[in-house]
């Protein structure tokens, strides 16, 4: 059976990557002065850190234990 969720995750990831690229591109390319460039860097590292934290915590989710708790309590 076709698993829809990896495809959905990939589509969301590509859309988010495009969104992030657009913010960084606009700040670097069209921002006047030093501040927009520094902010683009801050945005990049912040996004990377939050995405890494999301993936790390998502990998720690014990779905089996959660389902057991929900259906046997």
């Amino acid at each position: 059976m076709f698993n829809f969720f990896p495809l959905l995750f990939a589509i969301i990831l590509i859309a988010y990557a495009w969104y992030s690229f657009s913010i960084i591109y606009h700040l670097i390319r069209f921002g006047i002065g030093k501040h927009p460039k520094v902010l683009a860097l801050v945005f990049f590292f912040g996004s990377f850190l939050l995405f890494a934290l999301f993936l790390f915590s998502y990998n720690r989710v014990d779905w089996k234990q959660m389902l057991e708790f929900l259906f046997h309590s």
């Binding site: 988010y16 996004s47 995405f51 934290l53």
Partner: peptide, 26 residues
């Protein structure tokens, strides 16, 4: 673990929306 993963996802969305506003402002 699920709570924190959703929290970090929520922060990621807020972070991106905040920087969209920063971009428009600058």
């Amino acid at each position: 673990a699920l709570y924190w993963s959703l929290y970090f996802l929520y922060l990621l969305v807020l972070w991106s929306l905040a920087f969209y506003n920063v971009m428009i402002y600058f």
